[in-house]
Design a protein around this nucleic acid. Structure first.
Lengths: 199, 199, 199, 199
DNA sequence: GATGAATGAGACTTCATTCAT
DNA sequence: AATGAATGAAGTCTCATTCAT
């Protein structure tokens, strides 16, 4: 069996799991549900993932990787003045992608799970990792005079992440939420922190 | 049995449940766990709450009531210029109360549960209710020229709530988070939306 | 619930388990089988024994206790000349008890299980314990000149136990085995080791 | 494929199975375990043995054949006076062979299995067969005046087998058991039954 | 002939809920 | 009104066996 086929099997299982978790939740979803949706058998699933937990882990890890990637890419922007805006732009693009909607719903559930499950803490709460990235970016921007020093970088990094986390939550609650309206409001925040260069 | 005694019984059960839910999560907590912590028996619990779900509902409802109260009180402020700041102040006071820490942890879990459980939607997502309150307040403030019109009230209302929701999440992850630092950053946001009256 | 009732419950479960184990074996017996035979539910069983393994352990322990008791009682005989015969008499009495037949069948299965399950080793192989008791008795008898010194006590202790273990096995295979015939042969052995006092 | 190659394949599978069964037991051993140890695939195994049970059967049969051979050879001894000793000598030689240790461990497990599995009864309990052989031998010896008639042949045959079965069990429990010591004790038994010719 | 991924029945165990005491 | 032993449906996971390649 080629690695490509293996990847395909894992992909199918993970996608099925995301569907189920989004629909019924992490705990109410049974392995049978996942099997049914992936159109396979328990044995087959267990040959790729050793437990239900490991499926949740894999989903969390994938999601985490994606977020780190988003942040790292944006902060690679050489101009600290625009890095924060770039990040927000990229993030909102993801938030606007309807095919990622289920994944975002699952994220909220993984947040909750990570509070009571040490296993997930390294992965999920390395939103801490995100924050530290954000923090670096903001400090660089402060040093460049691009970001206010009226609050410290740590608080601002958390704030920016909260603006996005809160939105993920609200969007999960109300799928038809007005993304653009929220985005405009969010940009006011970023402008407040990193005022766009004046005339 | 007087109503006062009854209230006391319910209180004990709910407090025990919050402890357990905060520690192990909504699903990993068993009724036995709750009984043990409340120092009572399953039968006794079931004579006050007809199901585990109803206990979760009661906790969610209590929490919801509290939030609505916080918001309503702040928005009762006759001066739209300061209402938003009042709200934030009151909210941060609650966020700083260590005895409420467990309750906040449970909130995150209830958020997740409400995504997959229609039963909780009216209660929890009436953050929608909150939002509508906030929205009213912000529109009033806009009308009074106290809040920018660069974004619409709905987006701003969501934003303010997101700033708080995101913080609840982050604080649940990191209990020792720097509240004051975050608060300063959050105030920058509110200032950006509702600039404090100039000289 | 009184301790007597509790004991009764455990007794019923253990007896049902012995029946099932004797009939189908340790592994082929399901918890459902045991429940059915004990006329109870899985939950009830699990409130007395935390696992299927623990039921096996309890049976092994009970059996072990009984054997130690048999041996200790016989060796309490102050006359080393007759102690060995007393022991054999008591043991054969047990071997002749038809109501203990199933228990003996289970013993054989526990022997096998103990070979691959560290958990049972202390209990089952403390046939070692038995042996050491037997060994003490035989040494005492040798010292008293009641037992030949043509072989050492350890080997003879093992031999006596083997004579009984082998018979348990053969009896499990052939329930209608001739006990008295075997007993006469076994007594020849003991006579060979501990010649009855001459005229 | 030559019969020699086929035999080699079966040999490898059986040897692997013995290793696994000795280590983990008949039931805890999976077909995968056997495949891994035999360095082959499930499909390959199934083309030689139609089921896991049939592997166990084959091992039991092999063992049985070996025992019958041992007994038959010894009883071929024309002198009834020495036949019993010959048998014991040959058997102890086998018991002393460390390369057969695992096989002896498996025997104990097969004993247990044969109690609950009709399939194995003909093979394993044809220790009955052994006994009948032993019985013939002993009766011949009794007739020749070489064996006491203080007990009947059946009981004595069982006794001799029990002495060996019990030792297999004890040796399985304690691999470092003192074989020679036991052997000396066992010889006392045989001497008791069949006193060596006097001077 | 060999491979090994897939199958799916069935095992052990948990836990929300009930009800006789 | 309280107790807590009992219930039993349902969940996760295993593994003997098959069959397309």
């Amino acid at each position: 069996m080629t690695e490509a086929t293996a990847e395909q099997r894992r992909r199918r299982i993970l996608d099925a799991a995301v569907d189920c978790f989004a629909e019924r939740g992490l705990h109410a979803t049974t392995m049978q549900d996942i099997c049914r949706r992936a159109d396979t058998s328990p044995g087959a699933v267990y040959s790729w993932y050793p437990s239900k937990e490991s499926i949740i882990d894999a989903i969390a890890a994938e999601r985490h990787e994606h977020e780190i990637h988003l942040l790292a890419t944006a902060l690679a922007d050489p101009d600290p003045r625009t890095a924060l805006h770039s990040f927000l732009d990229a993030y909102f693009e993801w938030l606007s992608d309807p095919s990622e909607r289920l994944r975002r719903r699952v994220s909220v559930q993984v947040w909750a799970e990570s509070l009571v499950n040490d296993r997930l803490q390294p992965t999920v709460q390395e939103g801490i990792g995100q924050r530290s990235l954000a923090w670096d970016g903001i400090r660089a921007a402060q040093a460049a005079g691009a970001v206010t020093t009226a609050a410290d970088a740590d608080g601002m990094a958390r704030l920016v992440l909260a603006v996005l986390q809160g939105f993920i939550l609200q969007q999960a609650w109300e799928p038809d939420i007005d993304i653009e309206g929220y985005r405009r409001a969010a940009n006011l925040v970023v402008d407040a922190l990193a005022p766009p260069p004046g005339p």
